[in-house]
Amino acid sequence: MNKRTITLRVNGAEHTGETEPRRLLSDFIRDDLGLTGTHVGCEHGVCGACTVLVNGDPVRSCLMFAVQADGAEIDTVEGLAPDADTLHPLQEKFHERHGLQCGFCTPGILLTARALLRENPDPSDTEIREWLSGNLCRCTGYVNIVTAIREAAKEVSRR
């Protein structure tokens, strides 16, 4: 199978790589770019752990081929914090409010929440839960996740 050269921006930095067409975007991000914050749970679109932003929209990276991301802007959890010493308000609130336990689902949830807050800076709890329906968490029971997102929304609007 012919390899293809692709160029994409990940968290603002340009990357060029060679890839087989069958390579999933999730594997390209993890194994070729070494950004292992994007987690892989089910590989068939159900769990949401692999959620990244493609041109600003949350999507399943396990349901896209890396070749399809040629020319795209990708955001992964590694790009969420503004710098090495500061957390994003969502990360701060997840930390404060105990919005994670094992952390497997967390990167996908943080990116989904980030897209939600961009579209709707003041979501109701119902809206937050609707957006989270595509992200499975087997530890927390979601209550603290919803609280963390609600409080982060206030924090983001305040800044």
Binding site: G45, G48, T51, D57, P58, V59, R60, L63, M64, T112, A115, E130, W131, S133, G134, N135
Partner: peptide, 9 residues
């Protein structure tokens, strides 16, 4: 239809 991430694609 599924979830927001599914409908985006």
């Amino acid at each position: 239809i599924g979830h927001v991430q599914i409908r985006n694609r």
